[in-house]
Design a protein around this nucleic acid. Sequence first.
DNA 1: TTGTCGATGTTCT
DNA 2: GAACATCGACAAC
Length: 203
Amino acid sequence: MKLLDREFYNRDSLLVAQDLLGKVLVHEIGGQRISAKIVETEAYMGVEDKAAHSYGGKRTPRVEVMYGGPGYAYVFLIYGMYNCFNVVTREQGTPQAVLVRAVEPLEGVDVMAQSRFQLTCRQLSKSQTKGLTNGPGKLCKALAIDKRLNGEDLCGSRLYIEEGGPGNFTIVSAKRVGIDYAEEAKEFYWRFYIKDNQYVSVK
DNA sequence: TTGTCGATGTTCT
DNA sequence: GAACATCGACAAC
């Protein structure tokens, strides 16, 4: 399967966020492939976006990776408990990113079930299966993504994104989630998801 | 089914 | 000391 190259990420987050839908996020751990289809994303447009960590050109140790160039992972801890996984976009010095909000499990589902609930895939209840990866904190737990992967090169061989199948779907755009502090920016339709996919976090 | 609420710890002021 | 790109428990209906 074809790996997304550096140039794919070297564009505005609004484009990358939409193009990432249907693509496959892969984490290789000890030779085991854990993979999932991306079904929901949010664009963070950097310096001009009041919801972005890099708003106004803010530059702190945490957000430094967003300034480093396209195709790297930006992973941060939120609410003291959950990690969020982002893809850095745009050229070096322009700090944009795309938050991956939800994915649909493909390979290594037993590993995901173990990480989230200490159960095998077969033992999951219906609601546990549905809730396995339908949120930014949940998918990080399921795919074993944490702060150690902050700055990881997505054009490498450990954590990467590849072309999905030919899948046919409709993209829905909606307001972003959990950014009530962002004044007018919270009204922007910068969240994108695959219509009718059951793993989308908020319809 | 909907809602409200608190956990938890890093980061920045 | 405050804020935070979330989640799950639990109550009320």
